[in-house]
Amino acid sequence: MTIETSNQCMTAAAAKALLQQGLSCQVNSDLPPQFQVGDLVRARVVHPATYTRLPRYVRGKVGTVMQDHGVYVFPDTVGQLLATKPQHVYSVRFPAQALWGPAAPASDALYLDLFDDHLEGP
């Protein structure tokens, strides 16, 4: 399955509308989430040669789901003009020490927005 894109030239009116209205990546869907707020999750250890929104520095690290942002199209496949593959996106909190080791301040944290396909159980 591939995504067809238009080759039509954008008009000034279309540009204005796009700037004002934006382009939503969210999908109305009743797709059940794979994870719940409060769950411990591990970012998958994968190294795709293609486009991904899973930063390398977080792969294999464990964090906590803080919020479910809802269902969004999956840039990792959309970026290759493959399926939109809608799925839940979560705000996941990683303690700085989980990412950078004991020299990092114990209080500090890093938040990433990760998709279902980026995550697995701890």
């Binding site: 929104r53 969004y72 500090d108």
Partner: peptide, 29 residues
């Protein structure tokens, strides 16, 4: 990896009592 050093270079030195939260805008938010 070193937000406090970066902030210090911007002239903002934060005490240890302040929790630094870094938000990586890696998705569509």
């Amino acid at each position: 990896i070193e937000p406090r050093s970066v902030l210090a270079e911007f002239g903002l030195v934060l005490p240890d009592t302040v929790e630094v939260c870094v938000w990586d805008s890696n998705a569509d938010l």
